[in-house]
Write a protein that binds this DNA or RNA. Sequence first.
DNA 1: CTTTGCCTAAACACAC
DNA 2: CGTGTGTTTAGGCAAA
Length: 507
Amino acid sequence: MAMMSPQMITPQQMQQILSPPQLQALLQQQQALMLQQVKCAHILTHTCASQLGSKQLAFQQQLIQMQQLQQQHILNLQRQGLVPLQPTLYLTTRYFLRLIKETNFIFCVAFHSHEEHASSHPLYGHGECKWPGCEALCEDMGQFIKHLNNEHALDDRSTAQCRVQMQVVQQLEIQLAKESERLQAMMTHLHMRPSEPKPFNQPLNLASSGSLLKRECDAYPEGLPHPPTSAATPITPLRQGPSVISSSSLHTHSHSHTHGVGPIRRRNSDKYCTPIASELAQNCEFYKNADVRPPFTYASLIRHAILESPDRQLTLNEIYNWFTRKFAYFRRNTATWKNAVRHNLSLHKCFVRVENVKGAVWTVDEVEYQKRRPPKMTGSPTLVKNMISGLGFGSLNASYQAALAESSLSLLNNPHLMSPPTAASLNMLHVGHDDVSSTVEQVNSNGSCSPTLSPQQYSHAVHVKEEPTELEEDSRPVSLLANVTHSLPLPSDERDLEEDLPMEELE
DNA sequence: CTTTGCCTAAACACAC
DNA sequence: CGTGTGTTTAGGCAAA
């Protein structure tokens, strides 16, 4: 923790000043924030790959804002008074403290990266002014201060920018509240599970999700419905965050990916790419409400819709309905996508038309579907760009949620992520994101958007690319994660998780 | 440069 | 006749 700046609270201090409930609340906040940081970092990395210029700065600004929120939260809790820890809760809080420690570490690294020194300015880093949209180079702090006073003085423009930034923060706060609530619900749900062998340690599993996920996996083998909890990957930031970086995936993606705004074009192997099921499960609300094009091919979506149905067969109209029900994006341009759906149904052999009593229904020929997939592994560099471009950068909340969606995927357990990361030097993340895995999914009884598969049943590609130029600042969030990776002695061995991942080798 | 996969658009046929 | 469904073709883009 040498990097910890003076304003940071150490875990020991935390333990002294906060009650267990406070710690728990803090933990949840921290987790949400950390997750957001991870996600922001992730999308930021993609953003820089997209050469979005000043947009990178906006994302970075968000990152900093979240960090500041996080710190503010710590201070607020501090002001609430001192409550000694109860001995009975100590075991649990130890894990909380560990998490806090880790997240603090992330926080510190982030600040360290951004500011070089604790005394530096949040709007200044790496010799650049971090004012949104401003990339002015400033050799030192003095020059920066001058620049700040000259260029970003109190005028209409700065005020407007500040207002925008306030909206950014507001959106993030709203999102944070939502995510925290979700996390709490997830934790509550997991805690209630009767099969849980460590009833009181439930939150501990946040730090040892491997074992938790293992149980999930054991309990819900392939092809069987899975409870929503299994896809609730955000509860495992400690494991997942670092897992975003992987040296093993370093060599898998070295081509250019700086183009590709627009329609989704991917060719990902199911074996490596992210499952549609878990993606939809985690972000179904997002896709339902945000006018964001889902990062899947029509074929993938159709297949998913069909497999999600009770009988694994749908009429065309039911497929239409599924699209509109699940995706706000498909509530418009109906002519276009409906045509595409029909086109795909007809074109792909994997979709089989079956005459039914009521008429014709469409089913999925799984063998054909798998056949049509080339075994090559590719990333999905266009995904985030698609999402971002689809959203428009102004729609911050949607962008952010896209980041959430994207990052949630990256955070899923991936065997490729289990090797020791050397990611401090890495700066590019690529998430394969295309299709449903070869695992057969099944519909939820309630027909809701709950996940139908546990995430560990999928593996998806997270491709890390080295991009030494232009990415100094953008690599920060990633190296931040990489640093954390090294600092995470997790209760469960990484090996456990890896072993628990059913590799999909059906191709 | 070619191939492949995907998307969009459009034309057309057929059934209700 | 209009609409929905299904098939087919074509052009374009991006990645491999």
